[in-house]
Write a protein that binds this DNA or RNA. Structure first.
Lengths: 198, 198
DNA sequence: CAGCTGACAGATTTCAACATCTGTCAGCTG
DNA sequence: CAGCTGACAGATGTTGAAATCTGTCAGCTG
């Protein structure tokens, strides 16, 4: 009945790894720690993940995917106007990041280190997010609310333009007094650009 | 006649410091090194700069000011249309940064460390740049080319939106294949937003 | 006597011996 | 015999003593 008697799965290893990372931080979290937390030898962990880097990458992917899922609900809600969805999507992204950074700064710092180590996984996450943005903008073009030459390119531009409000590197400015106003001003400017109209 | 016989001025110390930073990098450049390069004792350097931090700050300010000056020529050129000036100004900023990062990566890395250490000086530099942007946008509003509620706020939004193309933290993406296209797409979107029109 | 020097205390950095970790694998165990 | 263990080699991290640096200042020098 005790956890140590259950089968060792990739899932259980990932959970234990998250816990070890939370406790010790990214610099001191070792594979030996993870094995100890699970009551197995570290050799067993290597049976499920080829390297320490692969293990960390899997943890990072899980974390990133959780954010994507929340936003995809907004993306997929076809009952609301594209402009509203775009504004809500960007606001939700900003809010989610700001909460993660503010609620548990140490854990956030840990994930900043992890995403910095990872090449592929972060790239896929960003591609996923710009993909969602592309769909919202395409919907806006279809409904006539937006007028842009190429939704895919424009989605990339919108994502890059709002980087200051979702790129973890800027987390220090998210809590500054005027941050919310700055965000609103930027989104207003971008939305005006999307409407095009000309 | 030899340099060691000339009077020791703040200016000469700054030049020597730049040279020492270029040679040894930010981590190993010491005040003793600077003094040795000038043929004086390190106590003399402390006569002109209260601390090592103040010395580095002065070097940083000089470097930042050189960029501001180039751009202010574009800002002040009242003979050209505001939209053209805005596009040129942003392009010149991007180009200047990209060249600095590409031509001498080590020196660029050095200045990234220096700007990271400095609080005040960098803030003033950013205020200067957004001030220039504000003047261009105000000119656009006056001429009827732009329609925005508050030029100051909008200038801040434009500056933040283009951060990916001037913030040193992003220097790695400046040389990537699609960077120029991404930049153009973003500026186009922002300019459409500025025209407002509605 | 204005400006520079160099010795000094305390803070910071370097370096090398030591400890721990990563990744592998032959063999144990249920 | 599938899955786990634990000993091992090489890589990486820790530690603390020695070296260097920062910032001060009493006194030298032109």
């Amino acid at each position: 009945m005790s956890p140590t008697t259950e089968t060792l799965t990739a899932e259980r290893i990932l959970e234990a790894t998250e816990e070890v990372l939370r406790r010790h931080g990214p610099a001191k979290a070792t594979v030996v720690d993870v094995a100890r937390a699970l009551g197995v030898s570290h050799g067993s962990v290597y049976r499920h993940f080829r390297t320490k880097a692969a293990l960390r990458e899997a943890v990072t992917k899980r974390w990133l995917d959780r954010t994507s899922e929340t936003l995809s609900a907004i993306t997929a809600d076809g009952t609301r106007a594209p402009e509203t969805r775009l504004r809500d999507w960007l606001a939700a992204l900003f809010e989610a990041k700001r909460r993660k950074a503010g609620d548990d700064p140490e854990l956030f710092a840990t994930y900043m280190v992890l995403t910095g180590e990872t090449g592929e996984v972060v790239g896929e996450h960003l591609a996923d997010l710009t993909g969602q943005l592309t769909r919202i903008i395409e919907a806006g073009v279809a409904s006539g609310d937006f007028a842009v030459p190429d939704p895919r390119t424009t989605a990339g531009a919108v994502f890059q333009a709002t980087g200051r409000f979702h790129d973890p590197g800027y987390h220090r400015v998210w809590e500054r007094p005027g941050a919310q106003e700055d965000f609103t001003a930027l989104v207003d400017l971008l939305v005006r650009g999307l409407r095009g109209r000309a």
